[in-house]
Write a protein that binds this DNA or RNA. Structure first.
Lengths: 122, 122
DNA sequence: CAGGATCCTTTACGATACTG
DNA sequence: CAGTATCGTAAAGGATCCTG
């Protein structure tokens, strides 16, 4: 009985850790959350729009991260028929399932600032 | 009018990006979510317990990440009066505020597996 | 405009061995 | 048991320049 409980708990942990690893690997790096968050706000943005909105990112990182996100079906990429060509990036329906996570991430960060500013410790 | 709206939106974005950066920097690295998740499940674990539960981590990373987390008041460290000494790590009340975030992270990872296995694409 | 190619620096991480 | 010290590798990220 006890042994079984431990085994179950262990496997539950394994599942959680695997899931967290998956999410982290897909959203790894310094910029993906910023890109996704920006695309969730204002849908349909050009490469340059993103470059301007996301403070500090360069063209190399932006294009690389966008490719990663596109590969995982989190953002869509549409080449417009203009001259010179422009590209529109947008969040996909699937990518939008990350909204709660990103909201939590931002919320916690804001609360953190408050807890550091507001009181002394903690 | 229009200009003001844009400015507001921009500053809202800046706040979000700052918040996300804060959270990411505090929870950076490969292991912090795993450590926190493990401590949230079973409270009060020893160094070796964590080493066993968290698959793949080594002593160096574990001790370093635990120090980071302790500095940010997310976990507590208690040296027990045993011989040889043992140490108990636990999640703090403040660290527990990360539960929703970690749950979301794990949930999304699980859903992701499902969407990859279940159907072909997306 | 959108991005690829190149080069370079920094950091993260891991393995191993050692200590109170 | 609970770490620290040392060493080495790999990956991430940034700056700059170039192209269709």
């Amino acid at each position: 009985m006890k042994k079984k409980a431990v085994i179950n708990n262990t496997s539950v942990c394994q599942v959680r850790m695997q899931a967290i690893s998956d999410t982290m690997s897909i959203l790894s790096g310094k910029w993906k959350f910023h890109i996704l968050g920006t695309l969730i706000e204002g849908n349909k943005l050009g490469f340059m729009d993103l470059l301007r909105e996301i403070d500090g990112i360069g063209t190399k990182m932006l294009s690389k991260e966008l490719q990663d996100l596109e590969m995982n079906h989190l953002v869509s990429r549409t080449v417009m028929n203009t001259k010179p060509i422009t590209v529109e990036y947008a969040i996909t329906e699937y990518g939008a399932t990350l909204s709660p996570l990103i909201r939590e991430l931002a919320k916690w960060g804001i609360d953190y600032r408050q807890s550091v500013h507001g009181s002394k410790g903690v």
